[in-house]
Design a binder for these strands. Structure first.
Lengths: 344, 344
DNA sequence: GCCTCGACGTTATACGTAACACCTCGGGGC
DNA sequence: GCCCCGAGGTGTTACGTATAACGTCGAGGC
């Protein structure tokens, strides 16, 4: 920037291509734009394309965006990419976006710590829309205020601000988990819940309590912990150490917490699943890395991203967004078994 | 786009703010730009800022980029974000970038599958530079050809094309692992190596063989597997099942492979670490989720991202990039112990 | 009393692209 | 012979911003 600017061959513009090809800049734009077929004779078009390739022409995207007033770029707001679930959501969204010549940029929202920077400054270009996963209400307000098409992922459908919702059938997943454990004979439960206060976790709790309530004779205690193996272990260890009848099954809001629960069990000398059943949620890679492998609920993370992008594209085109939650599946593995009492 | 365009109040421009504040557009730019302090009287400046806030003015980034010829945006090329290591690299790079009013967009490079799209089309804006982690040579060629400042992460320093390298002292990490195991008394090793053919893994292999060669009486077999728990388990299981003297330690290129190795051990009825020691690499969250926890090498992933961004900013400013690899640390946990023979 | 000068603003311009409106020209139709 | 028409191109404009170059005006030096 400071010096050595002159000798560098500046990037060729469409005008350079035009000059070299002996046509006007408008023609170059017509040819390379790809729309307007038949507007330019094939011989001329080919000459333009060849010259462009020869010069290594690359359209200036800033200029194009300015002209078009659109960048074909969406912002994806996620709590943290280090959570495999969201990394997969991104992958799904980015893949579908690419098919439609769209881009996805990320805004890892402040998960408690750090100053809440401006999500729109984080995107380095104008945005056509926003896809956001469930997040704190205040951060959400900022997004609403931006009058951009907004698609919410896995969040409260009664929040009618957004243009569309893409939800997982979380309640059904939790119901499947509970029914599975009840079927095995469990009656005393521990719910190792996320300390994060979002819709997706609230639904888990409600579904669990509903399903257990229907069973009549089941009891459940709840402890909450941050989404972290160590925190999950501590919370589970404390809960299991209290006097009174020990739970025979731990239902976790998340595979990460479930990993913590397994560690807690081992520390207390309880074998999983013989003496204690543990279930997770998400079906991360972690679930099959553990021993025993986790019984958990498979969430189609990539599909969430895809459907989110799909919904955004629909909104931008003025098409209606077909509603409907994404189905989730219980995956039974080695971390669940009948409780000790039921094993003769 | 098709209809209902008119009723929407178009986003205010700097000119709208100027009109409302009773000044010229240039003054608005001067005030909001923040440079040129003292160029405008404080009373006027305040009036402009107030009107801007009132109208909800947001500068058009496309126009700014066009004018400035720069977007303050870097492209980060990584194999896959679902690998926690790269998600952390991104987090580090994005955090430092934000401090310098820079943005980071991602290009998850085709890891074998999928058509290699254009990395520069993936970024939806002009780029000021590229930060790339080690990748296949052909993809790398495309980046070199773009005459953009390029910073390579954890890759062959003898590749002199890039503007700068940010490397981890991988060889030292592997040496620490080997010395630790040799010190415990191990002599028969299995190297569970990554099937990916990049510099960072080549260095691991070389360092391992060098360190073992120095020991004199140690032997090592190598098997390779994709970076995947299941694949790692299969490879390890087959290798452990062969006739002859069984290795007493498995050195893995990666925590994910180490998780596979642990599963293989359990399937074969070998207890870790009593009958078989296992080491990982990376210190992912997975390392402490497993039981026993993995002895592994902690890589400062966030720092890699930070230093990469730092180097890019330096190159852009014409400042020299100070070289030097990032140190890595052996973390001894429960997955390593003396071999059975050494335990009286 | 003239000139200078700094403080404060304004006017004008360019960035590179897309696309509207226009121009040219040869070939029919009548 | 005149007009129309479509094919194939070109001139021109606007997008919103940053900043260089240029007023203007009152205070102060000599």
């Amino acid at each position: 920037m400071t010096s050595a600017q002159q000798p560098v061959p500046a990037r060729p513009t469409s005008r350079d291509v035009a000059r070299a090809a002996g046509v006007s800049q408008a023609t170059v734009s017509l040819v390379l734009g790809g729309k307007w077929p038949g507007r330019v004779s094939e011989t001329t078009a080919q000459r333009v394309r060849d010259t462009a390739a020869e010069l290594g022409y690359r359209p200036n995207l800033a200029a194009r965006s300015l002209r078009l007033g659109s960048t074909r770029t969406a912002l994806l707001v996620v709590p943290a990419l280090t959570n495999e679930f969201f990394a997969r959501v991104y992958a799904g969204a980015a893949a579908l976006a690419a098919e439609h010549d769209f881009g996805v940029v990320l805004y890892p929202s402040p998960d408690g710590t750090g100053p809440a920077r401006d999500p729109f400054a984080s995107a380095r270009a104008a945005l056509d829309g926003v896809i956001a996963s469930s997040m704190a209400a205040d951060a959400l307000g900022a997004l609403h205020g931006a009058d951009l098409p907004l698609v919410m992922l896995d969040s409260d459908p009664s929040d009618t601000g957004p243009a569309a919702h893409v939800n997982l059938d979380i309640a059904d997943g939790m119901r499947q988990v509970t029914d599975h454990l009840l079927g095995l004979g469990h009656r005393r439960f521990l719910h190792l819940a996320s300390a994060v206060d979002t819709w997706t976790f609230a639904v888990r709790a409600r579904a669990l309590h509903d399903a257990l309530g229907a069973a009549g004779d089941a009891t459940v205690r709840t402890v909450r912990a941050p989404l972290d193996v160590g925190a999950g272990r501590e919370a589970a260890e404390q809960a299991l150490a209290v006097a009174g009848e020990r739970p025979t099954a731990i239902v976790c809001d998340d595979d990460i917490l479930a990993a913590g629960a397994c560690k807690a069990a081992r520390r207390l000398g309880l074998r999983v699943p013989d003496e204690l059943s543990v279930t997770g949620f998400d079906d991360l890679a972690l679930a099959t890395a553990l021993e025993p492998e986790l019984t958990t609920v498979r969430l189609p993370a990539e599909q969430v991203g895809e459907r989110g992008m799909e919904a955004l594209l629909a909104v931008l085109d003025g098409r209606p967004v077909e509603p409907g939650g994404l189905p989730v599946d219980l995956v039974v593995r080695g971390s669940t078994a009948p409780p000790p009492a039921a094993r003769a």
